[in-house]
Nucleic acid binder design. Structure first.
Lengths: 346, 346
DNA sequence: GGTGTTTTGAGGTACGCAACTCATTTTGAG
DNA sequence: CTCAAAATGAGTTGCGTACCTCAAAACACC
């Protein structure tokens, strides 16, 4: 009836006795320190295995004394999504303090590879872990690898650098996000013909490119009657997004769907309403004060969201687990693609 | 440029010096032990506030010695959702062991108030925390309150008992879930007239009743052209759900939408396909092996999901935070209503 | 057998806090 | 002013690990 999921209550001392060695030797084995004969190592390892011994995380943490420092390298300038991440880190202040974790924000121009790389290099040695919103570029990749080689734990946040040796990526699968957007636009349009517009920040950004790729995939295979117009680039700015979209709306009277890949949402919404085209199915990204209002007003039909709070917390937890040498709860740290409509606004 | 979010590195000793008292007195204040003058209490509290001092969680955990025990009271019998929760707890085994947390599963008949109440009473005194999938019934409420009075931390899981004094509810807002289902059915149907069917387990179950309420709310206000048929009760069983739905489909040729509130999904799907009505928009709950397949096949159009892994982990984290007297990260522990379609299947 | 090197044992300290005891000081009532 | 009660100080122990030193033992090599 009552089934226990955990067992351990042993200490290092028990392992030492079990393996017939002293505490010091067990300690050497546990931390891969030299000076233990291979045969002895094996005996100790076996004793650990046999009881599936786990060091008491509280004791380990206390014993090491030294506090840990993490750095979050984020875009400078006003970006609502990043501000939310920062805000959530602020909310964790108590949690962090109780664990003697120091988290520092480092603002930099993440869109300039050399500047970003320099910022990363500057962190070397001072931090136990670094979370970075990274551009995928050779010099950035090299900077990340240098950090890793120096023993710093590195996670990429929101935007990945898969070719680097970063330990983990905390963010969504952007191709799947684009596919989801495509499925939503297609389904919500609910008719078999018409045109669909895409507004992106830049096709040079990895995440935007991936989203567009996924979007087109679904449109082509599942909604062949809908024709996708060439991608507009709004540089994630409101005014520019508004201009390019307004022109497009003027040229095509039969636009029935719109996918806004990045930011600049305010401008997109304005172009739509100024043109009197509120009936166009409008799917965008992220739940912010603005998109929340647009959803409630019915201007936006759905938002694809990656929970910034979850990303912030996941990044911290992953860095901490990496630093402690603990396994990562992959399922927990996976960032899900949320579909947010008016009625499930968080 | 680099902005620090945390400060603390103080110890109890520093607070004692700061307040001009001894360690013993600080300890008395921290743990609300008697024998300290109100004025002294104030001085110590102020010193703690001033530096926003937080006890080192690792040191505190280590010092208390005793391991913590939590019990999960779950429905007996095969229930995929509950099995998933149990599985996720299993995945946390290492995490739990490293923190010397014992988690035990207690299977019981949660649908029988007296049996459930008795199971809860039996736990009294043995556990630091209890998570329970609870029926909302006076005797269950009383049992929960008794546990709380005995100092045990109690969280309700999946299904709440709001009238009890449980410390926390880990689960979704079921009215909002129903509203979300309504919005999806309405939008995906994409036409202004037709009938919509509802299959529920029982209208006596709190969560089902709430979902139906939310669903009807949205249908009435936003999709007046769609008429909702009387609720079918399938007792969460496949065969019964299939029978009642098959009969209804025979009676109404103009059913365009279907909301399956609880389990019995297999039967619902079978009734639909046997009747050759695959075009009906079908929205249900939870991502299981079955619903995943149905979504991929296009039989189901969307699933409203509450992440069971998140619920399991949140319950453990909340119980631990409660037991330690730590604040709860509400944003983190809030269970979101996920909309899952084919392209964002987790 | 002697020498030098590697491996191991033994032991200690520190980490920050909880929980406790016991002695001492302060306070307030009579 | 006295005495008991209340308040406070001082100190101890233990939690399980990390990290360090020093000495002893085992070993390899000539």
């Amino acid at each position: 009836m009552a089934e226990t999921l955990t067992t351990t209550a042993l200490t290092l001392k028990d392992i030492a006795r079990e393996a017939g060695v002293s505490l010091a030797t067990v300690d050497r084995v546990m931390h891969n320190r030299p000076g233990v004969r291979p045969d002895t190592v094996r005996r100790v390892r076996e004793a650990i295995e046999r009881h599936s011994f786990q060091p008491h995380v509280a004791a380990a943490e206390l014993a090491r004394g030294r506090a840990r420092r993490f750095a979050f390298v984020m875009p400078s300038g006003p970006n609502p999504f990043m501000q939310q991440i920062e805000a959530y880190l602020g909310e964790m202040a108590g949690w962090l303090a109780a664990r003697r974790l120091g988290v520092e924000m480092v603002a930099t121009d993440v869109f300039d590879p050399s500047v970003l790389a320099a910022s990363l290099e500057a962190l070397s040695g001072d931090y136990d872990g670094v979370a970075v919103v990274a551009l995928d570029h050779p010099s950035v990749r090299a900077a990340i690898n240098d950090l890793v080689d120096a023993g710093t734990k590195v996670v990429t946040l929101v935007s990945d650098v898969p070719s680097s040796r970063r330990h983990h990526y905390v963010g969504i699968d952007n191709i799947a996000a684009g596919r989801t957007a495509g499925a939503l636009v297609g389904r919500l349009v609910g008719q078999s013909s018409g045109k669909v517009a895409i507004v992106a920040g830049s096709q040079g950004l990895r995440d935007h490119a991936e989203r567009i790729f996924g979007f087109n995939q679904v449109m082509a295979s599942e909604f062949p009657g809908l024709s996708v117009l060439p991608v507009l680039e709004g540089r994630d700015q409101d005014d520019r997004s508004e201009q390019v979209l307004a022109r497009l709306l003027g040229e095509h009277a039969d636009i029935v769907g719109l996918y806004n890949v990045g930011a600049g949402t305010q401008g997109v919404a304005k172009a739509l309403s100024d043109a009197g085209r509120d009936e166009v199915v409008f799917v965008g990204h992220d739940v912010t004060v603005l998109t929340r209002r647009l959803l409630l007003q019915g201007v936006m039909d759905a938002a694809i969201s990656q929970n910034p709070g979850h990303e912030a917390r996941a990044a911290v937890r992953v860095l901490l687990a990496l630093a402690r040498g603990e396994p990562i709860l992959r399922e927990q740290e996976k960032i899900r693609i949320d579909i947010v409509m008016r009625d499930n606004l968080p």
